[in-house]
């Protein structure tokens, strides 16, 4: 019974039971997903202690909000990742100075982002489809969207990082989002 082997379906069932107050299911969900959510929080915060705080807050929120999880509309893992990422970003923006003191890790992350699409591990069909659609975008648009997602930064910071005017960055990402939506609907 490895945690990683939990299927989407069994995870969705467990999360549904969490929504009904089942603590055993809650523990199951935690064990199956906490490493992933920690990875997401750490990616945004670059600080283990902050990331662990966020993971803790995330599961408190999961317990309280699991009743609203709808397996027909969201996959359990994206539902959980979204909560964790949003919490991490809230934390990032409430303590910007502390988090900005990690230039080395930032540099590593930028290098990661430069990785070609074919070198990325693409686990699920949905992820593959998203990456196919992202790859249809212009390089700088794709880069801006990826930076925003992985670093949790606003338009303004994407503009700073890419040394491009704010208005230009906005139009890259907006056009990119529309193309992405069109592609995902095909």
């Amino acid at each position: 019974m490895t945690d990683a082997a939990m299927t989407r379906e069994s995870l969705a069932q467990a999360l549904t039971r969490v929504g009904q107050g089942d603590r055993s299911a809650f523990e199951t969900v935690y064990r199956a997903t906490s490493a992933k959510l920690m990875g997401v929080a750490l990616r945004i915060l670059h600080d283990r202690a902050l990331a662990e705080d966020v993971v803790q807050e995330t599961y408190v929120a999961v317990w309280n909000r699991a009743g609203s999880f709808d397996p027909g509309r969201a996959s359990p893992i994206t539902w959980l990742v979204t909560i964790a990422r949003n919490r991490a970003i809230d934390r990032l923006r409430s303590a910007p100075m502390r988090v900005r003191t990690t230039p080395v890790e930032d540099a590593i992350d930028l290098a990661d982002d430069a990785m070609p699409a074919d070198a990325r591990v693409e686990a699920a069909d949905d992820a593959r489809r998203l990456n196919v659609c992202l790859d249809e975008l212009e390089t700088r648009t794709r880069g801006a969207i990826r930076t925003a997602f992985f670093e949790g930064v606003t338009y303004e910071e994407v503009a700073e990082r890419t040394s491009a005017p704010l208005g230009t960055v906005k139009s890259w990402i907006r056009r990119g989002l529309i193309k992405l939506r069109e592609c995902l609907e095909r």
């Binding site: 990875g39 662990e52 949905d126």
Partner: peptide, 28 residues
């Protein structure tokens, strides 16, 4: 959210410390 969170598939998992789960259950 559903579409974009797929990007997180490429983020490697990192186990949080053993203190996190007890902290969650204590809080709840």
């Amino acid at each position: 959210n559903e579409d974009l969170a797929r990007l997180a598939d490429e983020i490697p998992g990192v186990a949080p410390s053993a203190a996190v789960w007890p902290a969650v259950t204590m809080r709840l």
